[in-house]
Design a protein around this nucleic acid. Structure first.
Length: 473
RNA sequence: GCGCCUCUAGCUCAACGGCAGAGCAAUGGACUCUUAAUCCACAGGUUGGGGGUUCGAAUCCCCCGGGGCGCACCA
């Protein structure tokens, strides 16, 4: 047998399984093309026929059959003893078998890396979720769906970048380490910088830095990056996840709504072939335009009562009680409205809807609604009962922003451990002037879940957060 | 953090108070057109860990650990 030390340092495949299928898939049975190609990958199946061995080689594009007759394939006995899972390189002739299966007649082969551990059952694959997440390197080989999902994720991010760049957006990278907490409502991870001897937060959102860049003259910016929120795990929450945020100067929330529905329906069409996407057995219609509805309308649809900021707090509280929505004494009408909406209406939405008109009390970074006092020009994108994104006309008045920050601090003192603090440098940036700006944040993981039709975020994150393995596991 | 469910051979699963089993993978052999190849042979285990009840525990009880789902939390 070939020893690991004998394997080459490099190999040069010139074809892939999918490429060969595309080029030669039409061949009749029993054809020998005379064309030689070199492929590489893992041996995933093997069927011995005495002096003839069939194999199936998998590479990142797919699988192709290997056809190895004893009188053609060198070191035939060794070839027949390869382990399922071994990496090999194969040079051979493109051909079809008598039954018509596209194959490579093995004229030469090289062991590229042996596997020391047996691969999971060739038919049943891996079903244990724990093993699939911990040993993703195995899962990706044996679970076609997993591989497809992550390839789709990659294309989604790539398409998004190109789509935004084509519209003049500039991709930027802003700090992961934040000295001041802000940009979202979430508990942070805290870390420490030794040389500076300061605690830093892992960012919960890039928002405040991106808006600084608009102040700096980058009129259209976006960032696709990881954010970190110190909260529980669930099928829809991973503590680190990927957010797309973008900001466009001179735009308002209506512009952002249009951009959002165009981008997402474009991605749906590109990645699934249609703007109608099947999700968990039910269709989601991403075709334009998406529904727009205010929080108050969505609440009314569920509970049959028209509520608003002018509804007395006592009345809102009893409505909350009536619908098993917990509330606290320091909640104002705005927060009560939001809670009522989230607990009664959000989960009921299926097709994309822009939920609009959020109270200022719960929207510290959004600009006041131009007509409705106490409301902001903010909307969330709800699909399949979940929040997919959040957007608004950006608050650009430094004085109002300071008041909102200070209100956040008060909410923090009242017991909200996810409230923001006052970001003085951000206020200074606003002093220099943030033009009218529209901003958007979209959870990339959740979007991938929808378009790849998977139920848990762990199936769209390559290495989801898990407890570390321990003895006895 | 709480509740429910779950953990058996490398993988997928049986056995559910009475000798821990099968298929695939592995190992040895037969086979020149297979498609989860087939056939013969052989091997494989502190049943997640620890404790208890019992004549007897994978099975019942308790503690611990991993995972899943729900709640809480969470834009």
């Amino acid at each position: 047998m070939t020893e690991p030390r004998d394997v080459p340092y490099r190999y040069e495949p010139d074809a892939t399984a999918a490429g060969l299928a595309a080029e030669y898939g039409h061949l009749e049975p029993g054809v020998e093309t005379g064309t030689e190609v070199t492929v590489a990958g893992r041996l995933m199946l093997r069927r011995g026929q005495g002096k003839l061995v069939f194999g199936q080689l998998a590479d990142s594009s797919g699988r192709i059959q290997l056809f190895a007759p004893a009188n053609v394939t060198p070191r035939f006995d060794e070839f027949g003893k390869l382990s399922l899972g071994d990496w090999i390189g194969v040079r051979g002739e493109v051909m079809t078998t008598r039954k018509g299966e596209l194959s490579i007649k093995v004229l030469d082969w090289t062991l590229l890396a042996p596997t020391r551990r047996p691969f999971p059952d060739k038919w049943h694959g891996l079903s244990d979720a724990d093993t699939r997440y911990r040993q993703r390197y195995v899962d990706l080989w044996v679970t076609d769906e997993a591989r497809r999902t992550f390839q789709l994720r990659s294309r989604l991010v790539s398409l998004t970048r190109r789509w935004l760049e084509d519209r003049g957006f500039l991709e930027v990278e802003t700090p992961i380490f934040h000295p001041v907490l802000g940009g979202a409502h979430a508990k942070p991870f805290v870390t420490h910088h030794n040389a500076l001897d300061i605690d830093l937060y892992l960012r919960i959102a890039p928002e405040l830095y991106l808006k600084r860049l608009v102040v700096g003259g980058f009129e259209k910016v976006f960032e696709i990056g990881r954010v970190f929120r110190n909260e529980g795990l669930s099928p829809r929450h991973n503590p680190e996840f990927t957010m797309l945020e973008l900001y466009e100067a001179y735009a308002d929330w209506h512009d952002v709504m249009a951009l959002t529905e165009q981008l997402v329906s474009f991605l749906a069409e590109e990645l699934t072939g249609s703007t109608t996407v099947s999700y968990q057995g039910r269709d989601i219609d991403f075709s334009l335009p998406w529904r727009r509805a205010t929080l108050a309308e969505l609440i009314e649809e569920q509970i049959g009562v028209r509520v608003g900021l002018d509804t007395p707090v006592d009345e809102l509280r009893s409505l909350c009680d009536e619908h098993d929505v917990p509330w606290e004494d320091h909640y104002g009408a705005g927060k009560l409205l939001l809670e009522l909406y989230e607990k009664t209406a959000e989960g009921e939405q299926w097709h994309p809807v822009f939920a609009t008109e959020y109270p200022a009390e719960v929207s510290p970074l959004a600009r006041d609604h131009r007509e409705l006092p106490g409301m902001t020009e903010r909307f969330e994108i709800i699909v399949a009962g979940r929040e997919l994104g959040n957007a608004f006309s950006e608050l650009n008045d430094p004085d109002v922003q300071r008041e909102r920050f200070e209100d956040q601090v008060r909410q923090g003192e009242a017991g909200d451990d996810e409230a923001m603090s006052v970001d003085e440098d951000y206020l200074r940036a606003l002093d220099y002037g943030l033009p009218p700006t529209g901003g958007l944040g979209i959870g990339i993981d959740r979007l991938v879940m929808l378009l790849a039709d998977v139920a848990t975020i762990r199936d769209v994150v390559l290495f989801p957060t898990l407890r570390p393995e321990q003895d006895g596991h």
